[in-house]
Amino acid sequence: MNNHFSLPRYFLLLRKFIKENSKSYILILIAGIGIIFLVYGLMIVSNFHSPFPDGSRKLVFTAGLLFGGTLFSASFYGFFSAQAKGIQYLLLPATNGEKLLIGFLFTQIVYIGIYLLGFMGIDLLLCNIYNKFIAIPEWVSEWQLHYYKAQYIYASDTLLLKEMIVLYFILTSIAHFGSLCFTKNAFVKTSIVFIILLAGVIYLNNKMLVMIIPEEIMPHGKYFQDSFRIGPTKTPTGIIALPERWQAIVTWVIPTFLFINFWTASYFKLKEKQV
């Protein structure tokens, strides 16, 4: 048997995976769609006399995408908690690359694809319901009327969609790696490690800025964002910002770097997995 990546074998593995897991995934899908529909639906019904709850909709969208996505990714290898399943999985004659690609497909393509389609379908339906049943109070001025018209999420805020999708890919690649590192309670443990590391990075970022920028220019350092002012707060003496091209590169390089790194780490973790 070929010891390198084989596409026909990958499809056999995929077929086996779908056949063995489809019922539980369909249940997850129904539960997920049901929860979103219920929460979003209640929001709409309770706002038939109020402006469209755009902020709350964004919150539901983001929570479902990021919380649901990371939870799904962090539990992808939950079967390792049952040793028998772990043994079957590791000893199935397929390469680690083929096995990892199943995880990649489901956490990076299938989940987000189904989520976006599901959410937008619900959004389409509920926006139409809102627009049909909205009772605008008489005291509302004409210039405020647009607050009482629901716009589909994909048309109203494309930047949010883009940012959240990029964040989704980063967070789920971390959660997927966590699923391979922790056998039990992977989501909770990965979240704790992530928060500790993030706090550490922010702290180190501040300490590095203190080291490279003199105290008299920028007292106590700062946390680097995309740019910052130097000198007194009220009368700044200058603004430090990355060159525009750098800014564009950093915006793409950091997420790509994290994404590739965590998937590479997942590959080696799977390769060295012991049960």
Binding site: N3, L91, P93
Partner: peptide, 19 residues
Amino acid sequence: RQPSFLEQVFFIPEEIDTP
């Protein structure tokens, strides 16, 4: 754990699990 090795080995653990 190469496929050419794994296809020659079958392990049935004490605790089993079936889909």
